[in-house]
Design a protein around this nucleic acid. Structure first.
Lengths: 160, 160
DNA sequence: AAGCGATATGTTATAAAATTACATGAGGTA
DNA sequence: TACCTCATGTAATTTTATAACATATCGCTT
């Protein structure tokens, strides 16, 4: 299991791996990783933090790549719908996926102090949500699992 | 486990039980269940659906109980912070709690067709989120667990 | 090459959700 | 009374998201 966001690591690798994975997936599925989409993904890959659409838009603007909200939202829709980026409902914000390109059911740990977000792979079948749904006869199409709190580093600081 | 929202039931009982539980809790804890707060709780108890703050505000306005957004948001903040109401992050909306007054870690099943929301009690300790947090050394303060899909009734209709 | 459909982007305007800041009011209590 | 706390009233603004319509680009067909 990867849980890089809260640990020191070679972050340049995260960026290039994310871009490469997206490029490959797009090539294989006849999808267009256009300049705007690619740039939005890069922006999100540049830190393990969730960014709001307007934060991203600001950076796009600085790059001369689009200045109106729909530009950012459309790129984000594309990236989210193909699994390159996840939306964090709790924050109305977005993070780059950190699990290569395969479909998955992620859970997120959101540090309220340093704002980093880490993605944990979960087994949807064994979750409480799935069990509750089964008991109720409910057909799940999408789930949101997000925990807010303190990452190891920030928890330690706050105890000190 | 209660999972009333998707089943036929004596709904008047839900409303009065919700109000009574809130009244009692407020009396015991020296909290004020003011007319606006009480009315917002009633509005939310009147259906097992999530309502946006502005939907609620509209009803308050009709009742002459307040017409500006902060009125609704303040009442909702109060009700949420004392556990009488839950916020559904996925919908930016609110539902009345259906589990009496004790603190709990609910999960929600949201039907995208009929819009009803049901609350399932979960054991936070055994959840995927808790396991992931434990592995990472993350201290959870709050969790969001929401599943979107089709309730039993709407799933059947869509299969027909 | 001209025309066509599909996909992506540019731009204006607006909607929806939430908060800030400051004024007012209703109770208790010293 | 004077004061404090809690709750409400109100105006203005900020933040997040979408609708609607125009333009551009690319591949395909004829």
């Amino acid at each position: 299991m990867q849980m890089k966001a809260f640990d020191a690591h070679d972050h340049d690798g995260c960026i290039s791996a994310g871009i490469v994975a997206a490029e490959r997936h797009c090539a294989e599925h006849a999808l267009q990783l256009t300049p705007v989409r690619r740039r939005v993904l890069e922006i999100l890959l540049s830190e393990h933090k969730a960014l709001g659409a307007y934060d991203i838009l600001e950076q796009l603007r600085a790059d001369g790549l689009g200045s109106q909200p729909p530009v950012a939202y459309r790129a984000l829709d594309f990236l989210v719908s193909h699994g390159f980026v996840h939306r964090i409902e709790r924050l109305n914000a977005f993070v780059a996926c950190s699990h290569g390109e395969n479909a998955h059911t992620p859970a997120f740990l959101i540090c309220r102090a340093c704002k980093r977000v880490t993605e944990a792979e979960t087994d949807p079948a064994t979750s409480e949500l799935a069990r509750a749904a089964q008991r109720a006869g409910f057909v799940i199409e999408r789930t949101v699992r997000e925990a807010e709190g303190l990452c190891p580093g920030c928890a330690e600081v706050s105890r000190a």
